[in-house]
Computed example of a mutant assay.
Amino acid sequence: MVLGMLPDKDRSMREAVETEMVKALQEQGYQATSAFEAYGPKSFQGMNEQEVMADLKDNGIQAVMTVALLDKEKEQQYTPGRVDYQPRLGYNPFWRRYVYYYDRVYTQGYYTNSTNYFAEGNLYDVGSNRLIYSVQSKTFDPSSMANLAKDYSKVVVKDMIQKNIISSHKG
C-alpha cells in the first residue's frame, strides 16, 4: 500500500503521488494499492501507528510505502544584464573600403522564480512494523504536480531495485 502523508490542502498532490507510486510498483510486478483509493481522503485519521498497522495487517497488506512532503521552498534568482558586441560591416565612401565596427547590445537583467520540494519515502514491513527503506529527495521546480509524482515514483522504485530492497518481477 502507498500512503501519501500530506495535509488536506495538498490532496491533489497526495492523490498524484500515491497513484504514480502504485503504477511504478505495478510495472515491476507488485500488487500495490493506494491508501486514498482504499480508505478515502481521511484514511487513518484519528488512529495511532499501532491501530493503523493492525488495520493494514487485518486487510492483508504486507508492506506500506509512506511518502511525506518535508518542505517546500520558493527561490528567486536574479540574472544580471549584460553587454554584447555585435559586429557590423560598413562602407566608407571616402576611402572606398569596407570597415568593421561593433554595436553594443544591452540585455536587461531578470528574475526567475522556482519551487523546490523535499520529500521522504519510507517502506515498512507491516508484519514486523520494521522500517525497511528510507529515502529523502529534493525536486527542483517541476513543470507540474503530475510530472513531479511520476518522476519521484520512478526514481524511488528504481533506487529500491538497485539496493535490493525489492526485485523486479517484470516479464
Results as ranks from 00 to 15, higher is better:
Val2Phe: 11
Leu3Val: 13
Gly4Val: 05
Gly4Phe: 10
Met5Pro: 02
Leu6Cys: 05
Pro7Trp: 07
Lys9Tyr: 10
Asp10Gly: 02
Arg11Tyr: 13
Ser12Arg: 14
Arg14Glu: 09
Arg14Pro: 01
Glu15Ser: 11
Glu15Ala: 14
Val17Leu: 15
Val17Glu: 08
Glu18Leu: 10
Glu18Asp: 10
Thr19Phe: 06
Glu20Cys: 03
Met21Gly: 03
Val22Ala: 07
Leu25Tyr: 03
Glu27Val: 05
Gln28Cys: 10
Tyr30Ala: 12
Gln31Thr: 13
Phe36Lys: 01
Glu37Phe: 04
Gly40Ala: 02
Pro41Ala: 14
Ser43Ile: 02
Gly46Thr: 12
Val52His: 02
Lys57Cys: 00
Lys57Met: 02
Ile61Lys: 03
Gln62Ala: 09
Ala63Glu: 07
Ala63Phe: 09
Met65Leu: 15
Leu69Ala: 07
Leu69Phe: 04
Leu69Trp: 05
Asp71Val: 06
Glu73Thr: 13
Lys74Asn: 13
Lys74Ser: 14
Glu75Cys: 00
Gln76Arg: 13
Gln77Thr: 12
Gln77Met: 04
Tyr78Glu: 03
Tyr78Asn: 03
Thr79Ile: 06
Pro80Cys: 01
Pro80Thr: 04
Asp84Leu: 11
Tyr85Pro: 02
Tyr85Val: 01
Tyr85Leu: 06
Leu89Ala: 09
Tyr91Thr: 09
Tyr91Asn: 05
Asn92Thr: 04
Asn92Tyr: 01
Phe94Ile: 11
Phe94Ser: 10
Phe94Tyr: 12
Phe94Arg: 11
Trp95Thr: 12
Trp95Asn: 11
Arg96Val: 00
Val99Ala: 02
Val99Gln: 07
Val99Met: 04
Val99Lys: 02
Tyr100Lys: 05
Asp103Trp: 01
Asp103Tyr: 04
Arg104Gln: 15
Val105Asp: 02
Gln108Met: 03
Tyr110Cys: 07
Tyr110Phe: 15
Asn113Trp: 11
Asn113Ile: 06
Ser114Tyr: 07
Thr115Asp: 06
Tyr117Phe: 13
Tyr117Leu: 12
Glu120Leu: 07
Glu120Trp: 02
Asn122Ile: 08
Leu123Glu: 02
Leu123Met: 11
Val126Lys: 07
Val126Asp: 03
Gly127Arg: 12
Ser128Arg: 14
Leu131Met: 13
Ile132Pro: 04
Tyr133Trp: 12
Lys138Glu: 15
Thr139Cys: 07
Phe140Gln: 15
Phe140Thr: 12
Pro142Thr: 08
Pro142Ala: 09
Pro142Val: 14
Ser144Asn: 09
Met145Tyr: 10
Ala146Val: 14
Asn147Tyr: 08
Leu148Lys: 07
Ala149Arg: 06
Ala149Ile: 08
Lys150Glu: 08
Lys154Gln: 14
Val155Trp: 05
Lys158Met: 03
Lys158Tyr: 02
Asn164Lys: 15
Ile165Ser: 02
Ile165Met: 08
His169Cys: 00
Lys170Ile: 11
Lys170Glu: 12
Gly171Trp: 07
Gly171Glu: 11
